[in-house]
């Protein structure tokens, strides 16, 4: 088995269909919808589209967890002991087990919400962020940016479960949140240890994290305004070790991503 498996080689059964961001941007409806004022984009149970949006998001969580599992797995294999010490790989193996459970939870929650595996397409950019060959960058991109995003997503879903009185959703999301906080902590810890004597490498890793954070804010997908379905979970991010300045920076990147999307849609719409 070779090291560094490219995203094209991710193995899936026939239920899974890949999507890509470019398809979304070429959809002529995007320009039109941007000209309409839809009150809040937040996931709230009293909105007509809430069930379909919640199901779609749950399926997104499901495929995201599969890719997080694969990414953590690859980190146990892709690096030798000098690049990634055993203790780091042990943490990644632990994350494999956690992500494996998260996939199981997501499948069950999907069934609970009335969706099924493969009902929506799979975007693979989460795994793509895990294809970098420097373990410090990979941990910054995956464990700090993407697992941080997972904190925001799970908190949003937990709030949705609470607001809709869905005890199963709220219960499960809360458990997954606990794991994600641990994964972010692992990422922060290993980023610091791996780059202890190399500030330039640390800066490159943090820059990569910023790029991933911006990418995953996806034109306002994640942010702190009503236009974002996924809200930044400040309290849980603090528990995971992000300081206020870092969270403010992510909020700023999210706002930039929303502005970029508006500009892009303004050009194409």
């Amino acid at each position: 088995m070779k090291r560094f498996l490219p995203v094209e080689e991710l193995a899936r059964d026939e239920r899974f269909i890949r999507s890509n961001i470019a398809d979304g941007f070429s959809d002529p409806r995007n320009g039109r919808i941007q000209q309409r004022t839809i009150s809040t984009a937040r996931l709230q149970p009293d909105r007509a589209s809430a069930p379909d949006r919640a199901r779609s998001l749950m399926h997104g969580i499901f495929v995201g967890e599969i890719q997080a599992l694969e990414a953590a797995g690859r980190t146990t294999f892709d690096f030798d002991d000098t690049d990634a010490p055993f203790a780091l790989k042990l943490d990644m193996a632990r994350q494999c087990w956690d992500e494996s459970r998260h996939v199981e939870i997501s499948v069950k929650l999907g069934e609970h919400m009335g969706t099924e595996i493969g009902e929506y397409t799979e975007a693979t950019f989460l795994y793509e962020a895990a294809c970098v060959t420097d373990p410090a960058m990979r941990l910054a991109g995956v464990n700090r940016a993407l697992e941080g995003l997972a904190i925001d997503v799970f908190n949003t879903m937990k709030d949705f479960g609470e607001a809709s009185g869905d005890p199963i959703l709220k219960f499960c999301e809360d458990w997954m949140l606990a794991d994600e906080v641990t994964h972010v902590k692992m990422g922060s810890d290993w980023l610091r240890r791996l780059t202890e004597r190399d500030p330039e490498r640390r800066e490159r890793a943090l820059e990569f994290q910023r790029a991933v954070d911006k990418l995953f804010s996806l034109g306002g997908f994640r942010g702190e305004t009503d236009e974002s379905p996924i809200q930044i979970a400040r309290r849980f991010r603090e528990l995971a070790g992000f300081d206020t300045k870092e969270i403010d920076e992510i909020a700023g990147l999210a706002a930039d991503a929303l502005d970029d999307a508006r500009a892009l849609l303004g050009q194409t719409g």
């Binding site: 959809d27 409806r29 039109r32 919808i33 309409r36 839809i38 007509a48 589209s49 069930p51 379909d52 949006r53 199901r55 779609s56």
Partner: peptide, 27 residues
Amino acid sequence: DEELAQPMTASYVDVDDGRIALWYSGG
């Protein structure tokens, strides 16, 4: 309403002057 995509779904069913009036999001 073909401007509305998945998962922005919604629908209304009413009767106006004896006609069934169905409104749907394209989603």
